[in-house]
Amino acid sequence: MSKQITIIGSGIAGMEAAAKFSEMGYSVILIEKENKMGGHVSKWHNVFPDYKPAKEIISKLKSTLTKNIKVFYETEIENVVALDGKYYLQLSNSQNIESEVVLITTGFELFNASKKEEYGFGIYENVITSANLEEKFNSGRPIKTSRDATPKRVAFIHCVGSRDEKAGNKYCSKVCCANAVKLAIETKQLLPDAEIYSFYMDLRMFDRYFEDLYFEAQSKYGIRFIRGRLSEACENPDGTIILKAEDTLSGKPLKMTVDMAVLMVGFTSSVKTIDLAAKFGISVDNDKFIKPLDNHLNLNITNQPGIFVAGACTGPKSIAETLADARSAAIQVINYLQSN
């Protein structure tokens, strides 16, 4: 078959879909804005619930990609023209491609934690994000504070930039709770003498094995959970961070000094995705993620025929869900091509 499928975004959703298309004999053009594939997952360390190394997922996905797949790195879409059932895409590398179908798998951006001014990210050195922590784990170096000390107390702050009207994102980012518990366990494994705390509003341990992770965190690793959203973070002269939250379970405000505070930053729709949606004429909902045509029966079809979506560009998803969504999109695309 000579029909060509264009996929925008080569994170795990794009890679999985590309592999499926190529299995079925289609040729694929994969457009990627960075200089390598793998999206956000390529930056993670170990993923929940079973601590599988993220690198393993990426390399398995890469190994399924064949020669039918052509990747344009550091390339973006400049312009889109729809004509007679085909899409003409003008790329930033001055090339033009023509495609009957386009699959958008542009993913997400992490919430910019400096928008939560009261948490002092970017101002207080010992306030870091979950992404920073994954980076530290990947580096293999021992975990140290900004003053090169071994942390005795680490706090994980849930719901940063999610479920937050002031931050502009009312939705729940879903996976950060499970991720936080996993990171807490990993931190305790690296720093066995440290006290690890989690400041949460609700614990969304929604998927299989997540509740086990929570139980293990408490029973085996002694991680303590404090139900209270962080109100403010301040800094002591020695660089340690003072956290203030309401201990809602005992009904009193609580103050705690920690050596390091890790902000669990949530998903936001990427600015470029919103821009791309406008170029293709597909709808974006109030939460700024792309709006598929149906919330139950079809999460991969948009209001534009021939334009399909998969992965986190339609909302927060775990890795397993993203891959399943990518496969589902692949079937929709192939059905569309075969029926036309």
Binding site: S114, E117, F121, I123, E125, E235
Partner: peptide, 10 residues
């Protein structure tokens, strides 16, 4: 304390 981030907020 990193002053640059404060300046960005200001």
């Amino acid at each position: 304390m990193l002053k640059e981030a404060k300046k960005a907020i200001w």
